[in-house]
Structures are given as C-alpha cells and as structure tokens.
Design a protein around this nucleic acid. Structure first.
Lengths: 112, 112
DNA sequence: CAAGTCCGTAAGTCAATACTAACAGTAAGT
DNA sequence: ACTTACTGTTAGTATTGACTTACGGACTTG
C-alpha cells in the first residue's frame, strides 16, 4: 500500500508556479522530450523532471517513452477540467449579478 | 513613479492557493463583505484581507466601500482573461496534434 | 467627542516548496 | 559486455509565502 504520500495537487495549483506554466505553455506548441524542455528552461534538468511530475499528477500532461527519451504532451482533458470550473464560476457569478440587478429593479418599481 | 513594488501576481498564481480559490469560489455566489468572508473561512480575518489583496491585484475581484464595510465582488474580466489563455493553449495544442497526425499520414502515404 | 465596528498594514514566525548536486536506472549503439 | 545518452529519484538547502498577533486608520452611532 502506502502509495505516494504526495498530496495530489490539482490543476490550479500546478499551473500556479510560473516555471511549470512556462513548461506547459511550451508543450502546447507540440510534444517535446525532457532534455529539449530543459534546454530552453531557466532551471536544471532535474527541476524540469520534478515539475513535469507535478503536471502529470494534475492530469495536465501525459508521458510516453520512445526509446530512452520520454516525450511529454498536453492532456486536453486537463485543460477541459479547468475550463469547466471557470465556466461554472462565471455562470454563478453572472446569475448572482442578475439576481442583484433584478432586486434593484424591483425596488425602483416599488418607488414609482 | 515607483508604482507598486510587489511583483504583480497574475491570475494563475492567485488561483493557485487553495484558500484564495475558496474565497473566490464563495464570491462567485455573490458580493460579500470582508467580515462575512472571514467568518466562513478557516483562517483569520487579516489573512483574508491579504488574500483579497492578491486577488484584486490579479484583477479577479473588485472592491467597493459602502460605509465602513468593504464589499468584494468578482471581476468577470479576470475570469475571461484566464479562459482566453486556456482556450489559446487548447487551440495550439490541437493544432500541433493535427500537424503531427497529418505528418504521420503523409509518411504512410509515402510507403504505399 | 467618545465608543464601537470594520478593515488594512507591519512585523515576525514557521511550514511548504522550488532548486541544485549526486546517484541510480533504462535503452541504444559499438 | 561496455559505453554513451536520456531520464527519474533522493537528500539537503534556501527561498518563498501563508499565517497570526498587534497596531492604526476610516466610518458610524451614542
């Protein structure tokens, strides 16, 4: 058992770190190996590996080994999940605003 | 000049923290004063104030003082900006995948 | 004007975490 | 089998940042 103790980080926490977001952004342009990613990054290769692990745990990227190289690519489902949550927030916020506006209008009517 | 010294935190970093995301999520249900937010939060009121400041800097919420109370509400533009970036990533990722698929298909054709 | 509310800020502490260096494992080539 | 290339993991350090306590300013009500 035991498994990993690491607190499973969600997508928002994963995208919170600038370095990770930079890696994710570069992966959006196309699949890439760890070494290539590290070459363009401002941090060491092990750091890139650790960040990729976090992104993978957050289901934002997927890994496929081809030979000795590990190719990372974006997992569309991860982006979708984040977008859905944003849409939900936006929806409830708009609904709340609408309810508020309606109530204001109601008061105006009452004053006529 | 001088402006703000604080390293301007963007929306992703702001939403990265679970406490802040919780506050933001509650604000999505409607505008609320600091005290009310702090009452339902797991941290102290000053902590809530600090988080609200970060959310405000990230343009995710706006503040309006009514009497001695400060009412915070969601800034739709903030959500929109985040969503736009997600859409852009999704778009380029899809385009990259399509280009890859086309290239593969091209190779298959060449082998015929 | 005094007292009570409501909120933001400053200072300081402590835990989370991002980073590097060193090591270990896996795959391909000679 | 040995070497080289590519990557993941571990250990340890240092920095970031989230939190509380204490304080001060702004507003309202008696």
């Amino acid at each position: 058992m035991a498994a990993v103790v690491h607190r499973a980080r969600d997508a928002f926490e994963a995208l919170g770190d600038p370095t990770r977001r930079s890696l994710f952004e570069r992966l959006a342009t196309g699949p890439m190996a760890v070494g290539d990613l590290a070459a363009g990054a401002a941090v060491s290769r092990p750091a890139v590996s650790q960040h990729l692990k976090v992104l993978e745990e957050a289901q934002l990227v997927t890994k496929t080994a081809v030979g000795a190289r590990h190719i990372y690519r974006i997992d569309p489902r991860g982006i979708g999940a984040v977008r859905d949550k944003l849409d939900a927030w936006h929806g409830t916020a708009m609904a709340a605003f609408q309810a508020f506006a309606d109530a204001e209008h109601e008061k105006d009517e009452a004053l006529k």
